[in-house]
């Protein structure tokens, strides 16, 4: 243990220390230094016994171990942390704000062209009657609509989906669990519907057969 670390091993140790950020803060604070020291010992032992293959094998095992255990620790941390419910609600609110723009646009279009009700669409049409505004709208709307929907879906999926990767008798087994959080699920449902509607509209506009 007293030998000077070579450059490769110090780089590997730094990489592993960086990867420890995958664990929750409390766990990292309590065990991060010990885990880094343990990895350092393991790495030097593998290098001593030699072979690049042994070191590569250590990295593969360590990464699989890190993915599986960081997922478990984060999941446990979320369960134990009372602020989580607040965090999930906040994600739902952010999600609703992100879907509100495409929701308004799609609702206004459906009411206007489906039912002939221009209550929502007419003010938008009047606003976009200026050429410069229309140009900006055409440029910005795809990013705001599709990007906002994508972000809202990702954030709320993170809130309701729990992934667990573990090893059972030498085989890597992954499970995905859905947690029933109504607000987040509502954002996912509305966001998915809007996304399908908008993509369907884009497809029909660009690829549909025209008579």
């Amino acid at each position: 243990m007293n030998e000077e670390p070579d450059r490769v091993s110090s780089v590997s140790e730094r990489v592993y220390q960086t990867l420890l950020f995958a664990y929750p803060k409390g766990f990292r604070r309590e065990y991060g230094a010990q885990m880094a020291q343990t990895f350092r010992d393991l790495y030097r032992e593998e290098r001593r016994r030699s072979g690049k293959f042994r070191v590569a094998g250590l990295w593969v095992r360590t990464l699989l171990d890190l993915i599986a255990t960081a997922t478990v620790e984060r999941s446990n941390d979320r369960k134990q942390n009372g602020e989580v419910i607040m965090g999930d609600r906040r994600l739902a609110v952010v999600g609703f704000l992100l879907v509100s723009a495409p929701l308004y646009f799609v609702s206004a279009s459906l009411l206007k062209y489906g039912l002939g009700v221009g209550l929502l669409f007419d003010p938008l049409e009047a606003f976009l009657s200026v050429a410069q505004r229309r140009e900006v709208f055409n440029l910005v709307s795809p990013v705001v609509f599709l990007g906002g929907l994508g972000l809202a879906l990702t954030l709320n999926a993170y809130s309701v989906l729990r992934m667990n990767v573990g090893r059972e008798e030498g085989v890597v087994v992954s499970t995905v669990r859905l947690e029933v959080k109504l607000l987040n699920l509502a954002v996912i449902a509305v966001g998915s519907l809007l996304l399908v509607t908008l993509l369907g509209y884009v497809f029909l506009e660009n690829f549909a057969y025209r008579y």
């Binding site: 065990y31 010990q34 393991l42 360590t62 255990t69």
Partner: peptide, 13 residues
């Protein structure tokens, strides 16, 4: 049986 650092310290915790 080879314990990785994450498995070891998760179990220790």
């Amino acid at each position: 049986m080879r314990l990785g650092p994450g498995t070891l310290y998760g179990s220790v915790k």
